[in-house]
């Protein structure tokens, strides 16, 4: 069922009125919350920034796997893009940026959706389009998405992008952890093409063990921290680097899941649609009152 904003508002109004009426009588209504599975076998990717050579083949492969506009792959050897830090957008679901590094002179780091264990976007989505799947990926249902951009605001990593270029019916776009590919037993496109295996795909818990092993065995090479292990409650994508990533590459985030506060407000706000209905009722009431006033003025 395709749904655009207008349809959504219509549905909302209809549902709002009816639920408002129902909720007044029965406060207990079955709540269709978003899918938010936190499986023990969820997958992840370990990004070893010390290995990355900045060839940007992952960007190329990603665009191919998601039917995006792909340049000749030779173009990706052009290093001029590194002059400016980029953010994932609608055509580049993943980007490689270059950062200064203490040990190596420079370090290239791939950015994309982190696929949080407690995703703020899923919690913020008012239509339940986003979901955390059993394999660890955070994906969304394009048909449900109404382009409200709440997820963009909610995301602590500023990942989701909106198709601003579409005048009608823009949707949210972000890395989907190659959900379709992994479902068929393939590796995510970026992981598969990476020539140096800077990206390692595996069970998140295995990756954490592997990451700790690497830090232990090569303490001279790594900054002793796995970014993503605890950030905002943990992310599926984990980063190893020779320096602290929080602050320069990623924002400094706490270890509490981002949805904690926002969810309570959000869910409180939309609980059983009471507040919106109340608001509608209030507005309706004002309208009703002012309508009478108009009539009484006319009579005069």
């Amino acid at each position: 069922m395709a749904q655009n904003r207008r349809d959504f508002l219509k549905t909302l109004a209809t549902i709002g009125v009816s639920t408002g009426a129902i909720s007044a009588v029965t406060p207990q209504v079955a709540k269709a919350g978003p899918t938010n599975i936190l499986s023990d076998n969820r997958m992840g990717v370990l990004v070893d920034a010390t290995v990355c050579i900045g060839c940007r083949k992952c960007e190329w492969a990603c665009q191919g796997a998601h039917d995006k506009v792909q340049q000749d792959f030779i173009e990706y050897e052009n290093n001029d893009v590194f002059k400016k830090a980029r953010r994932p957008d609608t055509n580049n679901l993943t980007v490689v940026n270059k950062y200064d590094s203490e040990l190596l002179g420079s370090e290239t780091i791939k950015l994309q959706c982190m696929h949080c264990d407690h995703p703020a976007c899923v919690s913020a989505c008012i239509v339940g389009a986003l979901s955390k799947e059993e394999n660890g990926s955070v994906i969304w249902d394009t048909d449900k998405c109404i382009g409200c951009r709440y997820c963009m605001v909610a995301c602590p990593f500023q990942v989701p992008a909106l198709e601003y270029y579409k005048a009608l019916d823009p949707k949210i776009v972000k890395c989907d952890f190659c959900f379709e590919r992994t479902k068929e037993g393939n590796l995510p496109a970026c992981v598969e093409i990476c020539p140096v295996e800077a990206l390692t795909y595996g069970k998140r818990e295995d990756l954490l063990i592997e990451a700790k092993k690497r830090i232990k065995n090569h303490s001279e090479k790594y900054f002793n921290y796995i970014y993503g292990e605890h950030e905002v409650g943990g992310t599926a994508w984990l980063y190893l680097s020779d320096k602290e990533l929080a602050g320069e590459v990623f924002p400094k985030l706490g270890n509490d899941p981002a949805p904690g506060v926002s969810e309570s407000i959000q869910h409180g706000l939309f609980a059983y649609f009471v507040p919106p209905v109340a608001l509608y009722a209030l507005l309706g009431g004002i309208m009703w009152l002012s309508k009478d006033k108009d009539k009484s003025e006319e009579k005069l």
């Binding site: 370990l46 290995v51 050579i53 900045g54 060839c55 030779i74 050897e77 290093n79 002179g105 420079s106 990476c194 020539p195 140096v196 295996e197 390692t200 595996g202 295995d206 990756l207 592997e210 092993k213 690497r214």
Partner: peptide
């Protein structure tokens, strides 16, 4: 065993360890 890089990575890492150190680019060609 994720500790040992796969074959493709092993080759590339071995070569790139030196080749990137002076070229600062990664021209596959």
């Amino acid at each position: 065993n994720l500790s040992i890089p796969d074959l493709k990575a092993a080759y590339h890492r071995q070569c790139m360890a030196c080749h990137t150190s002076w070229e600062e680019k990664s021209e596959c060609r």
